[in-house]
Computed example of a mutant assay.
Amino acid sequence: MSKLLDLIAKQKALVAEIEKLQQDEKEMKVFELVKDLEALRDKYAYSEADFVSVVLSYYKHETQAKTRKNSSSAKTATEKKPQYRVKLDGKEVVLKESTQGKMKPELEEAVKKAGFTKYAEFLDSLIKKNKVETFDQLIEKLEGELVQ
């Protein structure tokens, strides 16, 4: 029964909000425009997708490819993030700013030893523990060496 009361209360709130927005001149202009657009779409018997496509093409709005086949050809090579060799608890570990990808065994061991399962959590912990704001400041504080 409480769900019904919740829905009724939400309905009353929505009715009040609709009445308030109907008093707003800008909102009413948008509402009228949408009604006119729907009338045009119905007049020419366009589906919603086709109508949107026509409007976007008129304004020369670039849309993403609809199929993976077309979109994969437009991929660009991603630049690898620099990696830095640092000493943590007497062991050398290679850190990188990116939290994507697979961890090297030494890094995975250090992450697990610190009690984390994810590199991002481990990295956040290191930043907090060393009282720095950014990854670059962390590398500077840990005297990290750039790995080629």
Rank of each mutant, 00 (worst) to 15 (best):
A13Q: 14
K10M: 04
D50G: 01
K29D: 15
L126F: 00
Y46N: 08
F135T: 02
E121Y: 15
L4Q: 06
T134P: 00
G101C: 07
K10Y: 08
M103F: 10
P82H: 03
Q137S: 10
F31Q: 07
Q11I: 11
E92H: 10
K75I: 10
V111Q: 04
K91S: 12
K81Q: 06
F135I: 05
S47V: 03
D42T: 14
A77C: 13
K141W: 03
A16H: 08
G115M: 04
K69E: 12
K26W: 05
V132H: 06
K141Q: 02
Q64R: 11
K104V: 08
D89H: 11
T76V: 14
D50T: 04
V54C: 05
E143S: 00
S57V: 10
K29C: 13
F51D: 04
N130A: 02
K129V: 13
T67L: 10
D36L: 12
M1A: 11
K69D: 07
A39H: 14
L40T: 10
A65Y: 01
Q22F: 10
V34L: 15
S71N: 05
T76F: 15
E108S: 14
K91A: 08
M1E: 06
Y59P: 01
L37G: 00
E19M: 02
L123C: 01
E62M: 09
T134G: 00
D50S: 03
A45R: 09
K104P: 05
A120H: 12
L142G: 01
Q148W: 00
V15L: 13
K81Y: 08
E133C: 05
V52N: 06
L146V: 06
K75F: 15
L142C: 01
E121N: 15
E108R: 14
S73H: 01
L142R: 00
Y46A: 07
A16S: 08
L138E: 04
S98T: 08
L4Y: 04
E133R: 11
A110Y: 03
Q148N: 08
E25S: 07
D6G: 05
S71W: 06
G115D: 05
S98D: 02
M103Q: 11
L142A: 02
E121Q: 15
L33F: 13
E38L: 14
K69I: 07
K12C: 10
S125L: 14
T117H: 15
A13E: 08
L7V: 11
A16D: 11
I18W: 04
N70V: 01
E145G: 02
S53R: 10
T63E: 01
E109Q: 15
K129E: 14
G90R: 05
S73Q: 04
D42N: 12
S72C: 09
Y46F: 13
Y84R: 00
I139H: 01
V15M: 09
E38C: 05
L123M: 09
L14S: 08
T76W: 14
K29G: 14
E62D: 07
G101S: 03
S57A: 12
V52K: 06
F135Y: 09
T76S: 13
A13M: 09
F116E: 12
S47H: 05
E32P: 03
Q137Y: 02
R85I: 00
K3R: 13
E106R: 12
V55N: 04
M28H: 07
D89A: 03
D136H: 12
L14A: 11
